[in-house]
Design a protein around this nucleic acid. Structure first.
Lengths: 195, 195
DNA sequence: ATTTTTATTGATTGACGGATCAATCAAAAA
DNA sequence: TTTTTGATTGATCCGTCAATCAATAAAAAT
């Protein structure tokens, strides 16, 4: 059975299984054995490739973050005007794929982990700065010096509406969240550029 | 030593200790023994009064929620105009006490727990509905039919800015968050009432 | 053909933690 | 005084889990 070049395959399978397990449990309280079993291997192999539970989680986080980043990049690549860029970021942030059970669980646990894990905090920082700077870049031509403030405002709204949609008891309505953010954008744009 | 009527005292001590422990760990991964020790009693007694770890956590959550609710009520009681009411809600939401390490940890873990615990989800629902309806009530006289939409927008911004402030690497700046929300309010108010 | 490297297992270890329980103690009630 | 009730402890039970390790197997290198 043993073939060569298994490492990337095993790692990918473990990352995928980790996210699935976390999604089912809602917590990071999942065992390495559960993850390994779902990924079709023994627990020992999981340790062999990742070194420990923490590293498995971090890899899963990195993967989740990378998926989101790719989605944003993809949407941005098709935007021509600054307005389109903002719309692209917002739509990507509320895309269908983000409201999957396991993705939501990954993000929430990510936040929790960021309090105690240096590496998780670092990763989260990357996400936050990227969202912020993407927004600032798109806003600059539209609102001038106010770009930074508006970007922080919008970033907050995006994260917060995502949270409320994810944990609200009513079914998620991404379109509604998108409208809310875009309305705030429209009001700011109506103010014209600069301060 | 044994006196009568210890129950409420013990329960309060346990709740306080639980929040402190969670704050230090950043996780719900704290042992009943740790909590009990910090509260100055044996682990058996903690089980005696709460029945189990889950119930201890929920009590701690209820307490955190109650503190926040009291803060909002207090601020609202001194507000006369609708504008004041909105300002009161926003300021209470970003008050100094909310950015304590242990309070932040409680909220983040609360979110995580809400995915898997029926009771936690229910509690969170109460918080979310209360914030929403407080905002709608204050907004109605100002923006008429748009109140619901604006309230959801603001609620999202409040939760999201709290999250970003709490987990950002730069030091927290509640005033800045408050300005961001209040600016969004001002822009909406400038639109006048109704739709 | 032999050695080395990579892949893989699953048993094992060592530690930890939630819950339970019997036993103790003192205040209140009878 | 005796009984009952509530408070309290800490050892113990039972289970779990992360991590390690020796052993095995197959491919690749020599």
């Amino acid at each position: 059975m043993p073939k060569v070049g298994m490492e990337p395959i095993r790692r990918a399978a473990l990352v995928k299984a980790t996210i699935a397990e976390i999604g089912e449990a809602g917590t990071l309280d999942v065992t390495v054995s559960q993850i390994a079993k779902r990924a079709g291997m023994s627990s020992g192999l999981a340790h062999h490739y990742f070194g420990g539970k923490d590293q498995i989680f971090l890899a899963a986080m990195r993967h989740t973050l990378a998926l989101y980043a790719a989605e944003v990049r993809g949407a941005l690549s098709m935007a021509c005007t600054p307005q389109d860029r903002i719309g692209a970021i917002v739509r990507a942030s509320f895309s269908h794929s983000h409201f999957q059970r396991d993705v939501i669980a990954a993000w929430l646990n990510f936040y929790v982990l960021a309090q105690s894990s240096q590496q998780a905090r670092h990763l989260l920082g990357i996400y936050q700065r990227r969202l912020r700077s993407n927004l600032i870049f798109a806003l600059r031509p539209l609102v001038g010096l106010r770009a930074v403030d508006v970007a922080e405002q919008l970033a907050g709204m995006i994260d917060g509406l995502y949270l409320r949609q994810s944990l609200g008891q009513s079914l998620v309505d991404p379109e509604r969240a998108i409208r809310h953010v875009m309305r705030a954008v429209a009001l700011e744009l109506a103010q014209g550029p600069s301060r």
